[in-house]
Simulated assay, not measured.
Amino acid sequence: MNFKSLRAFQLAAERGSLSAAASELCLSQPAVSRLIALLEADLDLKLFDRTGRGLSLTRDGKLFYDTTKHILAGVEEIPRIARNIRTGDQQFNILTTPRVAQAVVSPALSLLRKSNERLSCSIDLRARFELDSAIASTRFDLVLASLPLNPSHVPIETKPLFKVRIEAVVPNDHPFATRCCLTADDLAGETLIGPWRNPAWRQQMGDALPAIDFSPSYALETHSSLMAYQMASDGAGIAFFDRLSARGLNTVAVKFVPLSPAKWITFGYIHPAGKPLSANALNFIDAIRQTILDFRLVSDDNANAVHLA
Rank of each mutant, 00 (worst) to 15 (best):
N2T: 08
F3E: 10
S5V: 01
A8D: 01
Q10M: 09
L11V: 07
A12E: 02
A12D: 00
A13C: 04
E14S: 11
R15T: 07
G16P: 12
G16F: 08
S19Q: 11
A22V: 08
E24I: 09
S33G: 14
R34T: 04
R34P: 00
R34K: 14
L39V: 02
L43K: 01
D44Q: 12
G52L: 07
G54T: 08
L55P: 05
L57F: 00
L57N: 02
T58Q: 01
L63A: 15
L63Q: 13
F64T: 01
Y65H: 03
Y65I: 00
K69S: 05
I71H: 10
A73D: 02
G74A: 06
G74Q: 14
I78H: 01
R80I: 07
A82H: 13
N84W: 06
I85A: 11
R86P: 03
G88W: 09
F92H: 12
T97Y: 05
P98K: 14
P98Q: 15
V100W: 01
V100R: 01
Q102H: 08
Q102I: 06
A103M: 08
V104A: 08
S106T: 15
L111H: 13
L111C: 07
L112A: 05
R113I: 12
K114P: 03
K114A: 15
N116D: 13
N116Y: 09
R118G: 12
S120Y: 03
S120R: 15
D124F: 09
A127V: 12
E130N: 14
S137G: 00
D141E: 05
L147V: 01
L147D: 00
P151Y: 04
P151Q: 05
S152L: 12
V154Q: 11
I156W: 03
P160H: 05
K163C: 02
V164F: 00
V164D: 05
V169W: 03
V169R: 06
P171H: 06
N172V: 11
D173C: 06
F176D: 01
C180N: 15
L182V: 12
L182P: 08
L182E: 06
A184Y: 08
L187G: 09
A188E: 14
E190R: 15
E190N: 06
G194P: 09
R197C: 10
P199H: 10
P199W: 04
R202S: 10
D207N: 13
A211M: 10
I212D: 01
F214M: 10
F214D: 05
S215H: 11
S215K: 13
S215N: 10
S215A: 12
T222H: 08
T222L: 07
H223F: 11
H223W: 07
H223G: 13
L226I: 13
L226W: 00
M231T: 05
M231N: 04
M231H: 08
D234H: 09
A239I: 09
R243Y: 00
A246M: 06
T251Y: 00
A253N: 14
V254M: 08
V254S: 10
S260P: 03
S260N: 14
S260K: 15
S260T: 15
K263D: 03
I265D: 03
Y269T: 06
Y269C: 07
I270F: 04
P272C: 06
G274A: 06
A279V: 13
A279T: 14
L282E: 11
N283T: 09
T291S: 15
T291A: 13
L293S: 14
D294S: 13
R296C: 11
A303W: 01
A303T: 02
N304L: 12
A305H: 03
